[in-house]
Design a protein around this nucleic acid. Structure first.
Lengths: 176, 176
DNA sequence: GGGCACATGTAACGGGTTACATGATTAA
DNA sequence: TTAATCATGTAACCCGTTACATGTGCCC
């Protein structure tokens, strides 16, 4: 149920509408947890029914009304408890590796093309992440507590993309 | 629909029962794609209905009967086509990163404990993978075509675990 | 006039998870 | 005698995906 807790963690920063949350899950939070707006609206309804968040409807003149969600004390406690519960590392689950595994059923050329496409994609993500690092996290020792945690998720992304990039290159080399 | 194709790829090696497949998805294939026996039986029924695999029932005296599944020509073609279709890199989706993201809502100690647990887990997986590398893939240049592809999935696992291990250490350092 | 940003939803479907169910053989 | 291995399945539920639905204001 990490979606619920990812929403709680996002809402603690500042009250948000479902729409705002969907944008976050499309950007920063989306680096490590993805969700569509439909999932978010569904989850918010559930969270409100459980009393983990409450909403206020804000009337707007020039835009549609919106519901601002806020985390309740109960919600904060639930988040804290969830964080304290041990969890297992997420297993890898990647289409490309299934393709490699079945690779000798296809032509070498096709596999190499796909590997090259992925290499390119990982390279692009990596440079996006590095740009963010440059922009927001130049001096790691001087970051606020909150920023340190965000920085760590970004570092994970950088490390992850670096790993994939290196593996793609290795794979291309071995198969060429 | 990578599950269907992961099953096809496994079955091309040798005909298998659902039970056999479930064991593979718990071991080697499970390094990059996981599935329970229920998923596998469900998927096999679908694959047979589509004509991608066919089954023979084998009567056994001292064990329950079993169904051996084999890939059809249509199935092979479908696998080949699926491999040729470009796919996107799998996004990260990891509970631990959600915890880190919401980390300032919990106590530092709890977070550090969890990071240490994960560091340990990744270390163990890494050494499992390295042992497999030692055992089966000592001379990469001399591997059969088929073995090369398997080797690459293992290399990916090694690279992945190395990345996580390094990140956990970095995170522990930054938060200590 | 077209398209994007804002804003929230319903409905249907498919894949993944968990629990339940059965029943023989073999090794500790 | 207890547990593990072999072997296949049903049922219910939850989560994720995709399509559909609505409607205003603003900028080009």
């Amino acid at each position: 149920m990490a979606l619920a807790h990812a929403i709680l963690a996002s809402l603690i920063d500042r009250p948000c509408s479902g729409y705002d949350l969907a944008k976050e899950f499309d950007g920063s939070v989306g680096f490590f947890w993805q969700a569509t707006h439909q999932q978010i609206y569904r989850e918010l309804s559930k969270l409100e029914a459980q009393g983990w968040v409450i909403s206020k409807t804000i009337s707007q003149s020039k835009r549609p009304d919106k519901k601002l969600y806020q985390v309740t004390e109960l919600g904060k406690q639930q988040l804290k408890e969830w964080i304290a519960q041990p969890c297992e590392p997420a297993p890898i689950k990647d289409d490309l590796l299934v393709k490699i595994f079945g690779g000798y059923a296809a032509s070498r050329e096709v596999i190499l093309e796909e590997l090259e496409r992925h290499r390119q994609a990982h390279l692009e993500r990596l440079s996006t992440y590095k740009a963010l690092e440059q922009k927001y996290f130049q001096k790691p020792q001087e970051l606020s507590e909150q920023a340190k945690f965000q920085f760590l998720t970004l570092l994970n992304g950088i490390s992850y993309e670096t790993h994939w990039l290196a593996w793609c290159q290795q794979a291309i080399k071995l198969l060429s």
